[in-house]
């Protein structure tokens, strides 16, 4: 297990963590024979930046600490990435990933807050996380003794096709809700096609700004830029809702998975696993 303090971790070290995270994702879905590999690889750098540098007050030895920043995986299918990040950060042993999606596991197909340590909200039906995050942001504002904890909500770009997201966006913009940071893992690919082929959600920044949000755009695989943007978002959230639009690549890091919808909900077979791990050796 890692030590809880990560304040001094460098960008180079974060990049190494992200590489290890990608290897864990592939091991997890390969072993399980199932799982959402593509969207887990696209969110990997975002999760490392959040859990190793940006989120405040988190402590793997005390996952329920009242003052901690919260995280909601609204794209709840991307659990191989989420659980791998929590394991790397020390919420539970990396070996637990071997039980992913098995009967009796704490690592359910979609996150269960009552089973997996470190999971702040149960999710799995797309579009619901941002509303829950607004509730947490309200709770933070109504509980000043908790130190203005922030709530980060990670959504996919395809998920933005769900109407509830825009109910939540409209509300937060109109009310200038503070302490909430939405993040879009803008990997441009959904289950059965590219997002543009399905229903384009562009232009993203203009939409969110029109709804009253501060929108930051960043390369979701540039660790230095990502950490800077997420930290800036965390600060700006003191004043109102902030969204970080992270441009990413579905399947990032494995050439034959990148940008391909076929890898949305698929695990690598033995040969594909070997080839992918080759690419992820440093």
């Amino acid at each position: 297990m890692k030590a809880p303090s990560t304040k001094s971790i460098s960008i180079g070290e974060l990049e190494l963590e992200a590489k290890e995270l990608r290897r864990l994702i592939l091991r997890t879905t390969h072993r399980a024979g199932i799982g959402h590999t593509g969207g887990s690889l696209s969110e990997a750098d975002i999760l490392v930046a959040l859990y190793f540098r940006v989120m405040g007050g988190i402590d793997p030895s005390e996952p329920g600490k009242a003052t901690r920043d919260r995280f909601i995986l609204s794209k709840g299918h991307a659990t191989p990435g989420y659980y791998s990040a929590l394991a790397l950060r020390g919420y539970f042993p990396v070996e637990a990933l071997e039980t992913f999606d098995e009967l009796g596991t704490m690592l359910q197909a979609h996150p269960d807050m009552h089973k997996a340590p470190g999971v702040d909200m149960s999710t799995g039906s797309l579009g619901q996380g941002l509303s829950c995050g607004l509730g947490m942001a309200h709770a933070s504002r109504r509980s000043p003794e908790l130190g203005s904890f922030r709530t980060f909500v990670l959504m996919g770009d395809g998920e933005l096709q769900e109407g509830q997201v825009w109910e939540a966006a409209l509300y937060a913009g109109a009310k200038k809700t503070p302490l909430i940071v939405a993040i879009v893992d803008d990997n441009r690919v959904q289950l059965a096609s590219t997002t543009d082929e399905a229903v384009s959600v562009a232009p993203l920044a203009e939409k969110w700004r029109a709804f009253g949000w501060t929108a930051l755009e960043v390369d979701g695989h540039d660790m230095g830029a990502l950490v800077a943007a997420l930290k800036e978002a965390r600060e700006l959230a003191a004043y109102g809702p902030v969204v970080v639009l992270a441009r990413t690549v579905k399947g990032k890091g494995v050439s034959f998975m990148e940008g391909r919808y076929e890898w949305h909900g698929k695990a690598p077979d033995d040969g594909q696993f070997e080839a992918a791990m080759q690419e992820l050796q440093s």
Binding site: M121, S131, C132
Partner: peptide
């Protein structure tokens, strides 16, 4: 916006 109402309630309930 009933869906958002229920989600906000869930987030509040998760925080006490």
């Amino acid at each position: 916006a009933e869906a958002n109402a229920v989600g906000i309630a869930a987030g509040l309930a998760a925080c006490g």
